[in-house]
Amino acid sequence: MPHIHPETELHNPQSTKPPLDPHLKALENEAIHIFREVAAEFERPVMLYSIGKDSSVLLHLARKAFYPGRVPFPLLHVDTGWKFREMIAFRDEMVEKYDLDLVAHTNPRGAAENVTPFSHGSALYTDIMKTEALRQALDAGQYDAAFGGARRDEEASRAKERIYSFRTPDHRWDPRNQRPELWNVYNGMIRKGESVRAFPLSNWTEVDIWRYIQAEEIPIVPLYFAKKRPIVERDGMMILAEDPRLELLPGEAKREEVIRFRTLGCFPLTGAIRSNATTLDDIISELETATVSERQGRAIDRDQAGSMEKKKREGYF
């Protein structure tokens, strides 16, 4: 057999992108493999779409995996009603541009009982508007597999999560009783009512995500780039102050700062960082010299030791 160099590729004339480096290529191949396997093995898959950078990468990989067909499952967005406005605009733009099926779900209790991050505190608010809302949406859609963008490097309790992560009919995760996962052979056998969360980005790190976004020219929410924005400081976090529902507490004052976000969630619970990174290059070099992890700006992780594991056991993504 003649020797064939792996990079002998004919470029699509419309594409100006150079081929991916072998590191990103390996991660991409693995993710596409997982997407195809889940789509083939399960009856009703869905993709959790949080609009953040990891979701953007996940969506891009899904489009690649099923090309030239369209993405063969809907995207599910659990909308707490407290997302950044730019996130919702971006979401709708993506759905339109890529011809996607979107299911957006908000827990009706939110409106009925007026559950807000301010009135109920971050822990209870997250429990109702995210965890409970997600369970409602998964039950309503009768989804037997849900793709998520979680990465093992994010948080200690994620380091042991499988790529196919088994859930009981009430969406619980039992970390002590996970199925062994060998090679890239995934066990997708479940009973009725049970489900699997599938994590194609398990082996990616935060730097990989950014380098891939850059290499693949993937659109992301502009909040990731530094810009002068109105903020207010609260509990040691800089919160974006553009939503009229954000009421200033005594002693608080709005001011403008050049900031950006490393992760995106609900705006009252997501802290900004001071940064001048206005391009992907800037973000990547900032990251390579960063001394704190990306979840540092997340209020919900700091509630208690093991807080993420607890949320996950209860069904949080």
Binding site: S157, A159, K160, P175, R176, S202, V207
Partner: peptide, 27 residues
């Protein structure tokens, strides 16, 4: 390294965990 609460409480490692690090040359 011992990411799970159960392990921290019992002081044992009970499962396979995956860790990520990199140098300039490789990950």
């Amino acid at each position: 390294l011992d990411g799970l609460q159960a392990e921290r409480e019992q002081g044992i490692t009970i499962d396979v965990a995956y860790r990520y690090f990199s140098t300039d040359k490789r990950s």
